[in-house]
Protein backbone atom coordinates (compact mmCIF):
# COMPACT_ATOMS: atom_id res chain seq x y z
CA UNK A 1 0.00 0.00 0.00
CA UNK A 2 2.59 2.49 1.04
CA UNK A 3 5.45 1.49 -1.25
CA UNK A 4 3.75 2.76 -4.35
CA UNK A 5 2.80 6.16 -3.11
CA UNK A 6 5.24 7.84 -0.71
CA UNK A 7 8.58 9.49 -0.86
CA UNK A 8 9.46 9.97 -4.52
CA UNK A 9 11.34 7.47 -6.69
CA UNK A 10 10.75 3.90 -5.70
CA UNK A 11 9.51 4.72 -2.18
CA UNK A 12 13.01 5.39 -0.93
CA UNK A 13 11.85 7.07 2.28
CA UNK A 14 11.33 4.25 4.72
CA UNK A 15 8.44 4.20 7.13
CA UNK A 16 10.93 4.59 9.95
CA UNK A 17 12.40 7.78 8.50
CA UNK A 18 8.89 9.08 7.98
CA UNK A 19 8.11 8.48 11.61
CA UNK A 20 11.28 10.24 12.67
CA UNK A 21 10.54 13.21 10.42
CA UNK A 22 7.06 13.29 11.88
CA UNK A 23 8.43 13.36 15.41
CA UNK A 24 10.73 16.28 14.61
CA UNK A 25 7.91 18.10 12.84
CA UNK A 26 5.71 17.64 15.89
CA UNK A 27 8.18 19.12 18.33
CA UNK A 28 9.07 21.89 15.89
CA UNK A 29 5.41 22.90 15.49
CA UNK A 30 4.94 22.77 19.25
CA UNK A 31 7.95 25.02 19.68
CA UNK A 32 6.90 27.57 17.05
CA UNK A 33 3.30 27.86 18.25
CA UNK A 34 4.41 28.07 21.88
CA UNK A 35 6.85 30.85 21.00
CA UNK A 36 4.12 32.66 19.02
CA UNK A 37 1.82 32.55 22.03
CA UNK A 38 4.27 32.99 24.86
CA UNK A 39 6.44 35.84 23.51
CA UNK A 40 3.77 38.60 23.71
CA UNK A 41 2.71 37.32 27.14
CA UNK A 42 6.27 37.34 28.41
CA UNK A 43 6.85 40.85 27.05
CA UNK A 44 3.66 42.02 28.75
CA UNK A 45 4.74 40.73 32.13
CA UNK A 46 8.41 41.75 31.99
CA UNK A 47 7.57 45.28 30.77
CA UNK A 48 4.93 45.72 33.44
CA UNK A 49 7.41 44.81 36.17
CA UNK A 50 10.12 47.35 35.35
CA UNK A 51 10.34 50.97 36.30
CA UNK A 52 10.68 53.39 33.33
CA UNK A 53 14.39 53.93 34.20
CA UNK A 54 15.39 50.28 33.85
CA UNK A 55 12.93 49.58 31.02
CA UNK A 56 14.59 51.94 28.54
CA UNK A 57 18.13 51.85 29.93
CA UNK A 58 19.79 50.55 26.75
CA UNK A 59 17.77 52.52 24.21
CA UNK A 60 15.82 49.36 23.60
CA UNK A 61 13.29 47.55 25.76
CA UNK A 62 15.00 45.65 28.54
CA UNK A 63 13.63 42.16 28.21
CA UNK A 64 15.78 40.33 30.72
CA UNK A 65 16.01 42.13 34.00
CA UNK A 66 16.49 41.33 37.63
CA UNK A 67 15.52 44.78 38.85
CA UNK A 68 11.82 44.25 39.07
CA UNK A 69 9.47 46.72 40.69
CA UNK A 70 5.79 47.31 41.11
CA UNK A 71 6.07 51.02 40.39
CA UNK A 72 3.85 50.83 37.29
CA UNK A 73 1.06 49.26 39.27
CA UNK A 74 1.47 51.97 41.89
CA UNK A 75 1.19 54.66 39.22
CA UNK A 76 -1.96 53.04 37.85
CA UNK A 77 -3.60 53.14 41.26
CA UNK A 78 -2.50 56.61 42.28
CA UNK A 79 -2.51 58.56 39.01
CA UNK A 80 -5.19 56.97 36.85
CA UNK A 81 -8.82 55.98 37.37
CA UNK A 82 -7.93 52.27 37.15
CA UNK A 83 -9.47 51.32 40.53
CA UNK A 84 -12.72 53.00 39.46
CA UNK A 85 -12.62 51.23 36.07
CA UNK A 86 -12.06 47.89 37.77
CA UNK A 87 -14.97 48.44 40.11
CA UNK A 88 -17.17 49.31 37.10
CA UNK A 89 -15.99 46.16 35.34
CA UNK A 90 -16.97 44.05 38.33
CA UNK A 91 -20.39 45.68 38.58
CA UNK A 92 -21.14 45.28 34.86
CA UNK A 93 -19.77 41.72 34.72
CA UNK A 94 -21.74 40.65 37.80
CA UNK A 95 -24.91 42.13 36.28
CA UNK A 96 -24.41 40.36 32.95
CA UNK A 97 -23.61 37.03 34.62
CA UNK A 98 -26.73 37.30 36.76
CA UNK A 99 -29.08 38.33 33.93
CA UNK A 100 -27.75 35.84 31.37
CA UNK A 101 -27.53 32.89 33.73
CA UNK A 102 -30.99 33.34 35.23
CA UNK A 103 -32.51 33.90 31.80
CA UNK A 104 -30.65 30.88 30.39
CA UNK A 105 -31.69 28.54 33.22
CA UNK A 106 -35.34 29.58 33.16
CA UNK A 107 -35.71 29.56 29.37
CA UNK A 108 -33.52 26.51 28.94
CA UNK A 109 -35.75 24.55 31.28
CA UNK A 110 -38.92 25.72 29.56
CA UNK A 111 -37.59 24.98 26.09
CA UNK A 112 -36.31 21.54 27.01
CA UNK A 113 -39.27 20.30 29.04
CA UNK A 114 -42.36 21.52 27.21
CA UNK A 115 -43.57 20.76 23.73
CA UNK A 116 -44.99 23.65 21.78
CA UNK A 117 -45.23 24.64 18.17
CA UNK A 118 -42.42 26.63 16.61
CA UNK A 119 -39.59 25.02 18.54
CA UNK A 120 -37.35 24.71 15.50
CA UNK A 121 -37.99 28.35 14.65
CA UNK A 122 -37.08 29.33 18.19
CA UNK A 123 -33.86 27.35 17.95
CA UNK A 124 -32.99 29.06 14.67
CA UNK A 125 -33.72 32.50 16.07
CA UNK A 126 -31.51 31.88 19.06
CA UNK A 127 -28.67 30.58 16.93
CA UNK A 128 -29.05 33.38 14.41
CA UNK A 129 -28.90 36.06 17.10
CA UNK A 130 -25.80 34.33 18.41
CA UNK A 131 -24.14 34.90 15.04
CA UNK A 132 -25.37 38.43 14.65
CA UNK A 133 -23.24 41.57 14.47
CA UNK A 134 -22.92 43.34 17.84
CA UNK A 135 -22.32 46.71 16.25
CA UNK A 136 -25.47 46.51 14.13
CA UNK A 137 -27.45 45.75 17.29
CA UNK A 138 -25.65 48.44 19.27
CA UNK A 139 -26.75 51.33 17.03
CA UNK A 140 -30.53 51.01 17.63
CA UNK A 141 -29.89 50.15 21.30
CA UNK A 142 -27.99 53.41 21.57
CA UNK A 143 -30.99 55.36 20.27
CA UNK A 144 -33.49 53.41 22.38
CA UNK A 145 -31.49 53.84 25.57
CA UNK A 146 -31.09 57.50 24.70
CA UNK A 147 -34.86 57.93 24.39
CA UNK A 148 -35.45 56.06 27.64
CA UNK A 149 -32.88 58.21 29.42
CA UNK A 150 -30.85 55.08 30.19
CA UNK A 151 -27.85 55.92 28.05
CA UNK A 152 -24.74 56.28 30.14
CA UNK A 153 -25.71 53.91 32.90
CA UNK A 154 -24.46 50.55 34.06
CA UNK A 155 -27.93 49.21 33.45
CA UNK A 156 -27.63 50.05 29.73
CA UNK A 157 -24.24 48.35 29.64
CA UNK A 158 -25.57 45.26 31.42
CA UNK A 159 -28.58 44.88 29.13
CA UNK A 160 -26.70 45.46 25.91
CA UNK A 161 -23.92 43.02 26.82
CA UNK A 162 -26.52 40.49 27.97
CA UNK A 163 -28.13 40.83 24.55
CA UNK A 164 -25.01 39.32 23.01
CA UNK A 165 -24.17 36.90 25.84
CA UNK A 166 -27.64 35.43 26.43
CA UNK A 167 -28.38 33.65 23.10
CA UNK A 168 -25.51 31.20 23.43
CA UNK A 169 -26.15 30.82 27.18
CA UNK A 170 -29.77 29.89 26.48
CA UNK A 171 -28.72 27.45 23.78
CA UNK A 172 -26.18 25.84 26.13
CA UNK A 173 -28.70 25.46 28.97
CA UNK A 174 -31.35 24.11 26.59
CA UNK A 175 -28.94 21.41 25.42
CA UNK A 176 -27.99 20.70 29.00
CA UNK A 177 -31.52 20.23 30.30
CA UNK A 178 -32.30 17.98 27.34
CA UNK A 179 -29.61 15.64 28.51
CA UNK A 180 -30.99 15.36 32.03
CA UNK A 181 -33.56 12.54 32.00
CA UNK A 182 -37.02 13.70 33.03
CA UNK A 183 -37.42 10.53 35.14
CA UNK A 184 -35.61 12.13 38.09
CA UNK A 185 -38.26 14.82 38.26
CA UNK A 186 -41.07 12.34 37.82
CA UNK A 187 -39.96 10.16 40.67
CA UNK A 188 -39.90 13.26 42.86
CA UNK A 189 -43.47 14.14 41.86
CA UNK A 190 -44.77 10.66 42.45
CA UNK A 191 -43.30 10.74 45.92
CA UNK A 192 -45.38 13.83 46.53
CA UNK A 193 -43.05 16.77 45.99
CA UNK A 194 -44.58 19.87 44.43
CA UNK A 195 -43.41 21.11 41.07
CA UNK A 196 -41.53 24.02 42.59
CA UNK A 197 -39.80 21.92 45.18
CA UNK A 198 -38.77 19.47 42.48
CA UNK A 199 -37.17 22.26 40.54
CA UNK A 200 -35.35 23.58 43.57
CA UNK A 201 -34.19 20.25 45.03
CA UNK A 202 -33.81 18.03 41.97
CA UNK A 203 -33.49 20.02 38.76
CA UNK A 204 -31.20 22.84 39.83
CA UNK A 205 -28.60 20.66 41.56
CA UNK A 206 -28.48 18.38 38.51
CA UNK A 207 -28.07 21.36 36.19
CA UNK A 208 -25.19 22.83 38.15
CA UNK A 209 -22.37 22.03 35.69
CA UNK A 210 -24.54 23.54 32.97
CA UNK A 211 -25.09 26.84 34.64
CA UNK A 212 -21.53 27.10 35.85
CA UNK A 213 -20.47 26.82 32.18
CA UNK A 214 -23.04 29.43 31.25
CA UNK A 215 -21.89 31.79 33.99
CA UNK A 216 -18.27 31.43 32.85
CA UNK A 217 -19.27 32.14 29.28
CA UNK A 218 -21.24 35.24 30.34
CA UNK A 219 -18.34 36.32 32.51
CA UNK A 220 -15.86 36.14 29.67
CA UNK A 221 -18.15 38.00 27.26
CA UNK A 222 -18.80 40.76 29.79
CA UNK A 223 -15.24 41.10 31.08
CA UNK A 224 -13.97 41.21 27.50
CA UNK A 225 -16.56 43.57 26.07
CA UNK A 226 -15.44 46.78 24.43
CA UNK A 227 -17.87 47.34 21.57
CA UNK A 228 -21.13 47.59 23.49
CA UNK A 229 -19.84 49.78 26.33
CA UNK A 230 -18.05 51.99 23.84
CA UNK A 231 -21.43 52.84 22.33
CA UNK A 232 -23.74 53.03 25.33
CA UNK A 233 -21.34 54.70 27.80
CA UNK A 234 -19.79 58.11 27.27
CA UNK A 235 -19.04 59.22 30.81
CA UNK A 236 -15.54 58.18 31.87
CA UNK A 237 -16.53 57.58 35.48
CA UNK A 238 -18.71 54.69 34.30
CA UNK A 239 -16.14 53.01 32.03
CA UNK A 240 -15.11 49.43 32.67
CA UNK A 241 -11.39 48.63 32.58
CA UNK A 242 -11.39 47.61 28.89
CA UNK A 243 -12.77 50.94 27.72
CA UNK A 244 -10.96 52.99 30.36
CA UNK A 245 -7.54 51.52 29.69
CA UNK A 246 -7.99 51.85 25.93
CA UNK A 247 -7.72 55.59 26.55
CA UNK A 248 -4.13 54.98 27.67
CA UNK A 249 -3.19 54.29 24.05
CA UNK A 250 -3.62 57.98 23.30
CA UNK A 251 -2.36 59.42 26.58
CA UNK A 252 1.21 60.62 26.40
CA UNK A 253 1.82 60.58 30.14
CA UNK A 254 1.01 56.86 30.30
CA UNK A 255 3.95 54.80 29.13
CA UNK A 256 4.32 51.18 28.02
CA UNK A 257 5.07 50.11 31.58
CA UNK A 258 1.73 51.34 32.91
CA UNK A 259 -0.13 50.04 29.86
CA UNK A 260 1.28 46.57 30.31
CA UNK A 261 0.53 46.75 34.03
CA UNK A 262 -3.10 47.52 33.15
CA UNK A 263 -3.06 44.59 30.72
CA UNK A 264 -1.78 42.30 33.47
CA UNK A 265 -4.44 43.47 35.91
CA UNK A 266 -7.19 42.93 33.31
CA UNK A 267 -5.87 39.46 32.52
CA UNK A 268 -5.88 38.14 36.07
CA UNK A 269 -9.61 37.32 36.41
CA UNK A 270 -9.84 35.39 33.10
CA UNK A 271 -6.56 33.71 33.87
CA UNK A 272 -7.89 32.47 37.21
CA UNK A 273 -10.94 31.14 35.42
CA UNK A 274 -8.74 29.29 32.94
CA UNK A 275 -6.71 27.85 35.78
CA UNK A 276 -9.47 26.62 38.04
CA UNK A 277 -12.48 26.15 35.82
CA UNK A 278 -10.86 24.84 32.65
CA UNK A 279 -13.13 21.85 32.33
CA UNK A 280 -16.32 23.85 32.62
CA UNK A 281 -14.94 26.19 30.03
CA UNK A 282 -14.16 23.44 27.56
CA UNK A 283 -17.61 22.01 28.09
CA UNK A 284 -18.94 25.22 26.55
CA UNK A 285 -16.86 24.57 23.45
CA UNK A 286 -18.03 21.00 23.23
CA UNK A 287 -21.70 21.46 23.92
CA UNK A 288 -22.14 24.39 21.63
CA UNK A 289 -20.22 23.13 18.68
CA UNK A 290 -20.52 19.56 17.65
Amino acid sequence: MFENRTGGPGGLVSSRTQRRVRRVALYLTALIVTAFIVTPLYVMIIVSLQSPETLFSGGELTLFSTELSLSNFRTLVTETATPRYLLNSFIITAGVVLVSTVLAVVSGYGLARFSFRGKTTTARLILFSYMFSPIVLAIPLYIIFFNLGLLNSHLAAIFSISAIAAPFSIWLMWQYFQNIPVTYEESAWTSGATRWRTIRDVVLPLARPGYVSVAIFAFSVAWNDYTMVKIVLSEQALYPITLGSSLFLDQLNIGWGEQMAAAVVMSIPPFLVALFLQNYLLQGFNLGHE
Binding site: T34, P40, S220, S245, L249, Q259, S267
Partner: peptide
Amino acid sequence: LRTLMIVPYLLPTVVVVFLWTLMLDQNLGL
Protein backbone atom coordinates in the same frame (compact mmCIF):
# COMPACT_ATOMS: atom_id res chain seq x y z
CA LEU B 1 0.17 23.29 25.97
CA ARG B 2 -3.59 22.85 26.10
CA THR B 3 -3.91 25.18 29.07
CA LEU B 4 -1.63 27.66 27.35
CA MET B 5 -3.93 27.76 24.32
CA ILE B 6 -6.86 28.94 26.45
CA VAL B 7 -5.02 32.06 27.57
CA PRO B 8 -5.15 34.16 24.36
CA TYR B 9 -8.82 33.29 23.87
CA LEU B 10 -9.68 34.51 27.36
CA LEU B 11 -7.61 37.69 27.36
CA PRO B 12 -9.73 40.76 26.69
CA THR B 13 -9.33 42.10 23.15
CA VAL B 14 -7.97 45.33 24.61
CA VAL B 15 -5.08 43.39 26.17
CA VAL B 16 -4.38 41.67 22.86
CA VAL B 17 -4.30 45.08 21.21
CA PHE B 18 -1.86 46.41 23.84
CA LEU B 19 0.42 43.42 23.33
CA TRP B 20 0.50 43.64 19.58
CA THR B 21 0.88 47.41 19.39
CA LEU B 22 3.95 46.95 21.58
CA MET B 23 5.25 43.93 19.63
CA LEU B 24 4.90 45.85 16.35
CA ASP B 25 5.79 49.30 17.71
CA GLN B 26 8.01 51.39 15.48
CA ASN B 27 10.50 52.44 18.16
CA LEU B 28 10.51 49.61 20.67
CA GLY B 29 8.76 46.68 19.02
CA LEU B 30 10.49 43.31 19.08
